[in-house]
Write a protein that binds this DNA or RNA. Structure first.
Length: 584
DNA sequence: GCCGTTTTCGGCCCGACTGTTTTCAGTCG
C-alpha cells in the first residue's frame, strides 16, 4: 500500500473544500455539516491520519467520522486525491468559494450570482456590481450591491486574526471605555477570547443593563470604530481598524449565565450542549434552559454554573469548551485538577544581556522574585546562535560563576539554576561539549537553523538531542511563529515517544508568538506520559507576565499541575533534577 | 453524512438582524 504523507491540515482542507462545493451546489445542509465536522475532527487529531491508517486504526471510531469519511480519508492517503472532489471542482467554479468569504454572502447568494450573471470569482463579481447588474437580480437590491462592493475590500484583510496578547490589549481598552458608562451592570468578553484560543477572530461583548440604548451609544463612541455593521434592540456589531469585528449583546440579568455560556462557545461545544439538553427534555438558548414541554418554564439561566448543573454537567472552564474531551466520563476530575497560573513555581527558559536579552542577570532575578517565583533557570543562547551573540564554553562558565555568587547572596530564599539553551546544530550534534554541558544544572535544547530540512532530518535531530544524556528538555519543539512562520516538518509522534523513553520534558513556550507545543500536541504528549514544562522564554523583565499564555495552552490541553514540571516546589524540582541529571 | 440505554430511519441547535419583502429567506455566530 502506497501511503502519501498528507498532513491532517491538508486532509481537513480537502473536506472543508468538499463542504463548500457541496453547499454551493445546494446539497442537504446536514451533509455539508458532516463534512465540516469531519474536517474539524481531523484537524484536532493528535497523530497524523496517514500513520493511523498505516497502523490499521479504524478512523470511523473517531467522533464525527463515519464510514464514508473514513473511506474517503483512506482513498486520499493512498492515492493523494479524491475523485468526488475532482468532479465537484468541474461542476462548481472554484472562485465561488471566495465569494462566500464576503460578509453577507453565503452559498445560496453566491450560486445565484453565478447562475444569473455568470459570476466566476471576486473579479467578475466586482465587475457585475460596478455595472449595477447585481442590484437587478430578484432577492438582491441596491444596498446588497453596495455592501458587496465595500466588503470585498475587507476579504483580504479579514483573514487576519489577532494574537492573544493583542486581543488582551484591546479588551483592556474596551473595559476602560465602558468604565465610563453607568448604564452597564455586568460586562464580560466571551467567544474565543474567553476560551483563550491562541488567536482571536473577533470579540464578543456581553452586557446586562437597564438601558441597552445607553450602552450601545457608548459602544458607538469607541474611538477605533470604523463602521457600525448592524444595530438592533439587543445586538450591535462594529468593525474597527484592520477589518476586525466586535459584537455586543445586551441581555437580561436572569439570562446572564445562559447568554455567557452561549456566546462563549465554541459552536461545536454548544451544539453538543443543546442536543444533550434535548435528550433530557430541556431546551437551551441564550435566554436560559427551558422545559421542552412547557417553554414558559425557566429551569436555569442566571449563572453558567446552574446552566451546566441542570444538564448534569460540572461547570466547564471556557478553555475546555471545544467539544474534545469536556463531556467525557473523566471530565469532572480533569476539571477539578486543571492547572492554574498560581501553580507555577519556576521558569526554566530565559535570556539576559549576556546574549539577546534586554536585562541583566540581577534584574531578571529581581523581576522573577517580584512575580512570585521560587526559582528560575538562566538559559542564554549557545555560540552557534551568533545573531544573538551566543555564548561559547568560556563565557558560559563565566556566567555560571556569577550565578554561583548570586545564589550565595540569595541565601536559599530563591534559587537561580545554571542553564543553557543549547542549539541543536544542522548536522545533528549539540553546539557545546559534553564536558561543558555536564556542569549545567538545566539544559534545554532547541533548533534555530536548518528549519527547512526534511521531516526525517528534523525529527532525527530532535530525537538525538532528547537521547543526549545531558539534555533535560526541548524548547519550542515545532519552531512555529504564529501567523508568520510555519512549524518545521517534524514527526511529533516520534518526538513524544523519544521524550517518554528518555524521560525528558517538552516545552510549552508561553511567548504569544510561539505557544508551542500547542494545546493538541501538549495533550497528546501528556497522554503518552511525557512531562511538560511551561516557560516564558523571557527576553526582558516584562516577559514574566507572558507565563499566563503558556498556562492557558496547558489548560486548553486539559493538563493538571502534576503533568507540568515547573509547578513543583524548589525542593521537589531539585529532587527531580537529581534523578534526571548525569554528572559524569 | 453522522448517529443511536426508546431509534439502522429520521432526526440533525437556535435566535437576531438585514434586505428584500408584504411574510420571509439568507446569513451569521
Amino acid at each position: 500500500m502506497n501511503i502519501h504523507k498528507i498532513t491532517n491540515e491538508a486532509l481537513a482542507a480537502i473536506f472543508e473544500e468538499m463542504a463548500d462545493l457541496l453547499e454551493l451546489s445546494g446539497e442537504n445542509t446536514f451533509r455539508v455539516r458532516a463534512y465540516r465536522n469531519g474536517a474539524m475532527a481531523i484537524a484536532s487529531l493528535a497523530s497524523p491520519v496517514a500513520d493511523m491508517i498505516a497502523s490499521g486504526v479504524d478512523l470511523s471510531d473517531i467522533e464525527g467520522i463515519g464510514s464514508t469519511l473514513a473511506e474517503k480519508s483512506k482513498v486520499i492517503v493512498e492515492t493523494g486525491h479524491l475523485p468526488q472532489l475532482e468532479k465537484l471542482r468541474q461542476e462548481v467554479p472554484r472562485g465561488l468559494r471566495d465569494l462566500m468569504r464576503i460578509p453577507g454572502l453565503g452559498a445560496k447568494k453566491a450560486m445565484k450570482l453565478h447562475q444569473e450573471l455568470g459570476v466566476l470569482d471576486l473579479a467578475s463579481l466586482r465587475d457585475a456590481c460596478q455595472r449595477g447588474a447585481v442590484a437587478a437580480i430578484k432577492g438582491f437590491g441596491e444596498k446588497t450591491q453596495q455592501s458587496i462592493l465595500q466588503n470585498m475590500d475587507i476579504v483580504e484583510k479579514a483573514s487576519k486574526r489577532l494574537a492573544i496578547d493583542v486581543a488582551d490589549a484591546l479588551v483592556t481598552r474596551l473595559r476602560a471605555h465602558f468604565q465610563e458608562c453607568p448604564a452597564i451592570n455586568q460586562i464580560e468578553f466571551a467567544g474565543s477570547y474567553r476560551r483563550c484560543k491562541e488567536t482571536v477572530g473577533d470579540l464578543d461583548i456581553l452586557v446586562t443593563s437597564d438601558s441597552p440604548t445607553a450602552v450601545m451609544d457608548r459602544f458607538a463612541e469607541f474611538p477605533a470604530i470604523q463602521e457600525i455593521l448592524a444595530r438592533g434592540e439587543t445586538k450591535m456589531s462594529v468593525r474597527i481598524s484592520d477589518a476586525f469585528q466586535i459584537d455586543m449583546r445586551v441581555v437580561e440579568p436572569d439570562a446572564w449565565g445562559a447568554a455567557l455560556q452561549y456566546f462563549t462557545g465554541s459552536k461545536e461545544h454548544n451544539v453538543h450542549v443543546r442536543s444533550l439538553a434535548k435528550s433530557k427534555g430541556l431546551k437551551v438558548n441564550e435566554y436560559g434552559v427551558f422545559d421542552a414541554n412547557d417553554e414558559s418554564r425557566l429551569v436555569a439561566g442566571k449563572t453558567e454554573q446552574e446552566v451546566y448543573q441542570v444538564l448534569g454537567l460540572p461547570w466547564i472552564p471556557p478553555e475546555l469548551r471545544e467539544n474534545r474531551r469536556e463531556f467525557a466520563s473523566d471530565a469532572a476530575s480533569r476539571i477539578a485538577h486543571l492547572i492554574r497560573w498560581e501553580d507555577i513555581q519556576g521558569d526554566l527558559h530565559m535570556h539576559t544581556t549576556a546574549t539577546d536579552g534586554e536585562n541583566t542577570l540581577e534584574e531578571m532575578v529581581q523581576a522573577a522574585k517580584d512575580s512570585g517565583l521560587q526559582y528560575i533557570a538562566i538559559t542564554d543562547h549557545s555560540k552557534r546562535v551568533s545573531v544573538a551573540r551566543g555564548l561559547d564554553e568560556a563565557k558560559l562558565i563565566e556566567q555560571w560563576r556569577a550565578i554561583d555568587a548570586l545564589n550565595q547572596k540569595l541565601a536559599g530564599a530563591f534559587h537561580v539554576f545554571k542553564g543553557i539553551e543549547c542549539d541543536i546544530l544542522e548536522e545533528g550534534p549539540l553546539d557545546l561539549s559534553d564536558d561543558c554541558l555536564r556542569q549545567a544544572d538545566w539544559v534545554t535544547a532547541s533548533i534555530h537553523f536548518g528549519q527547512k530540512q526534511s521531516r526525517d532530518q528534523i525529527t532525527d535531530r530532535i530525537v538525538r538531542a532528547i537521547a543526549h544524556p545531558c539534555v533535560h528538555s526541548i524548547s519550542h519543539p515545532t519552531g512555529r511563529l504564529i501567523s508568520r512562520r510555519n512549524p518545521y516538518d517534524v514527526d511529533m509522534t516520534a518526538v513524544v515517544q523519544a521524550a517518554k523513553e528518555y524521560k525528558k520534558c517538552l516545552e510549552i513556550n508561553a511567548n504569544p508568538e510561539r505557544l508551542d507545543l500547542n494545546d493538541i500536541m501538549a495533550a497528546n504528549a501528556a497522554d503518552a506520559g511525557v512531562l511538560l514544562v511551561i516557560n516564558t522564554d523571557a527576553h526582558s523583565v516584562s516577559h514574566f507576565a507572558l507565563m499566563k499564555y503558556g498556562v492557558q495552552v496547558a489548560r486548553r490541553a486539559g493538563l493538571s499541575k502534576d503533568q507540568v514540571l515547573n509547578t513543583r516546589s524548589l525542593s521537589a524540582f531539585r529532587e527531580w533534577l537529581a534523578q534526571h541529571t548525569v554528572r559524569s
